[in-house]
């Protein structure tokens, strides 16, 4: 093939790539911009004046944070074990955990609800004097299943990408596996672990389907249905922001719903920006 034909092929391909990239970027930008266009200062002001909005925002942040803490406590050791241990059924375990990522979140909520309505489990809950389904605590449970799946995947990738020789040397020097984990593994996987934390928190904050199915809505419920603790924490009679948004739309208050959507987009955007920053800092110092 002649040199000029080669050149024109390359050029045409590059032009096509630019075109596709441009369309995708423009489309995404338009999506976010249109959410701004559908709302206005009045709708945002009206949203901010709703006492339930502030309770909802607080409930969202509060539950997402609790969820993330629990996810870290369970997920980081799980991810480390998955990354380091070789055992029969390891591949099956990974498939099981990862499949939560692709199942519709509402399905996760439904499955959770069914599991907790199962007669023996129900009897156990009654014995303890506490029903999980439709309780405020169940919000954390619904978020947790998804945040955990996302967190474990990120943390496992962080541990997998770490050269195992660092741990080998640390142990040959007399460091126990536990000491090695805290003095070598965690510091070296730091940015990957932080990325997993941000991801888990964002996932928990954004969760809608699973929460709606397992926990239902709270805003319209009678205040007496809430425990003293919920009232004291200021999270009674409130829904997480994503559920709140859906209720506004359902109730025909589109502008306020879109204003709420905008709030969620803003928080998500900030989190993703943070994730990318973490990704950059990781590249700069792992291979030193």
């Amino acid at each position: 093939m002649s040199s000029s034909r080669l050149r024109s092929r390359t050029r045409r391909f590059e032009r096509a790539l630019w075109l596709v990239l441009g369309l995708v970027i423009a489309g995404s930008a338009w999506l976010f911009a249109s959410s701004l266009g559908q709302t206005d200062g009045k709708a945002i002001r009206s949203l901010l004046e709703q006492p339930w909005f502030w309770r909802s925002a607080w409930l969202s942040v509060f539950t997402a944070t609790i969820t993330t803490l629990v996810a870290m406590l369970v997920g980081i050791p799980t991810a480390y074990a998955l990354s380091r241990f070789r055992f029969r059924g390891r591949a099956a375990a990974q498939v099981l955990l990862d499949s939560v990522l692709v199942v519709p979140a509402s399905t996760v909520g439904l499955v959770l609800m069914v599991a907790f309505q199962y007669p023996p489990v129900l009897a156990l809950q009654d014995a303890l004097g506490f029903r999980v389904v439709h309780s405020v605590a169940s919000i954390v449970l619904a978020q947790l299943v998804l945040a955990l799946a996302f967190g474990i995947q990120a943390w496992r990738a962080a541990f997998d990408s770490l050269n195992p020789r660092y741990e080998h040397v640390a142990r040959s020097l007399g460091g126990s596996r536990l000491r090695t984990f805290f003095t070598v593994t965690i510091p070296l996987a730091k940015s990957g672990i932080l990325a997993g934390i941000v991801l888990a928190w964002t996932r928990a904050l954004a969760e809608f389907g699973a929460v709606l199915l397992l926990s239902g809505t709270f805003r319209m419920r009678d205040a007496a249905q809430f425990s003293g603790l919920s009232r004291w924490l200021g999270i009674s009679n409130a829904d997480v922001l994503s559920v709140g948004m859906w209720m506004e739309i359902e109730g025909g208050r589109t502008e306020r719903g879109v204003a709420l959507a905008f709030t969620l987009v803003l928080v998500a955007g900030l989190s993703v920006y943070l994730l990318h920053r973490l990704g950059d800092s990781r590249r700069s110092w792992v291979h030193s």
Partner: peptide, 20 residues
């Protein structure tokens, strides 16, 4: 025995100095 119980010095390829 575990590596940490053996008291064996180990210098791996590329040395694996702790970068942190």
């Amino acid at each position: 025995l575990y590596p940490e119980e053996r008291n064996i010095g180990y210098v791996p390829q590329d040395y694996a100095l702790f970068p942190n």
